[in-house]
Design a protein around this nucleic acid. Structure first.
Length: 271
DNA sequence: ATAATCACCTGCTCGC
DNA sequence: TGCGAGCAGGTGATTA
């Protein structure tokens, strides 16, 4: 999926286009994405104005005058702004029409996404209450990772991909951050020193910021709100590069499976 | 409590 | 050219 840089790129793309706009209609073309879509969504949304678009973890929050829309792109989702009459293509599951004649279109081939209306404060939504810190915030640090990992035998890669540990780090950026920090992805989380966790926390921030600057990473589906792909793929150092030389030492990058997820690393540079 | 596995979907690539 | 197997950016639920 879209990991944090892709979701944030999407947020920045759509916010200026829908902020202060009034919703005039909602079109649902499938009964469910990951979970059933509320068939009354239209009645709940029409007439409301968008106050802001924010992000928590990989969730987008479209804040309305009454309540909020919670949106997750899942593995393959993307959002685009299109003129109202644009014919729906394959996997264009939801349209939200606005008074200016534009429409926010949710495309999601694998339908693992989420779109739900929530009345209360979004932070109280059950899906958001157990999330860890934002990786780019100051409360996310090596000390935090170190403390949270003591006595954990879980491999460090699934540990940092657990959204209760830290949010926003998915399969691509987990491999990239561990490479940059020189840590083997299969090392037990509880057997990594504070010093090394400080480096890892720093590299997580660095790689996410660099990807954000490039508009995210497009593997196949992801698109920015204007339809352009993300350009960070060219800067990936290990993800998807098994068999190719390590950019640092030249030894071949290896691919292994860790917690059912493909994992890429350099046996020489990562210990 | 923690860790591993399964499940939700479609589409694409690979090997035969 | 066709077909089944395996895999893909996420994450909640279920099982040991």
């Amino acid at each position: 999926m879209p990991e944090l840089p892709e979701v944030e790129t999407t947020r920045r793309g759509i916010e200026p286009l829908i902020c202060n706009q009034q919703i005039t209609g909602v079109v649902l073309r499938v009964p469910k994405l990951r979970w059933p879509l509320d068939p009354h969504l239209s009645e709940l949304l029409v007439g409301q104005r968008v106050l802001a678009v924010s992000r928590r973890a990989k969730y987008l929050l479209i804040r309305l005058e009454q309540g909020s829309l919670l949106l997750h792109l899942g593995m393959s989702g993307s959002l685009r702004m299109v003129p109202l009459q644009t014919p729906a293509g394959k996997h264009d599951h939801v349209d939200i029409h606005f008074a200016d004649g534009q429409s926010l279109r949710f495309n999601d081939p694998r339908r693992f996404g989420l779109l739900a209306f929530f009345q209360g404060t979004p932070d109280d939504h059950p899906l958001l209450t157990h999330l860890g810190p934002e990786p780019l915030a100051t409360d996310f640090s090596g000390t935090f990772l170190f403390q949270r990992s003591r006595k954990r035998r879980l491999a460090v890669k699934p540990f940092i991909m657990d959204q209760r540990t830290v949010v926003g780090v998915g399969n691509i950026y987990a491999s990239e951050a561990l490479f940059r920090a020189g840590i083997r992805p299969d090392r037990a989380a509880g057997r990594i020193s504070l010093t090394r966790y400080e480096e890892l926390a720093w590299q997580i921030k660095e790689v996410l910021l660099a990807a954000l600057e490039a508009g995210g990473t497009t593997v196949s589906d992801f698109r920015q709100a204007d339809g352009r792909p993300g350009y960070f793929k060219q800067q990936l150092q290990v993800y998807g590069r098994d068999g190719l030389p390590c950019p640092v030492c030249g030894q071949g990058i290896v691919k292994v499976s860790l917690g059912q997820r493909s994992t890429f690393f350099c046996r020489h540079c990562q210990r």
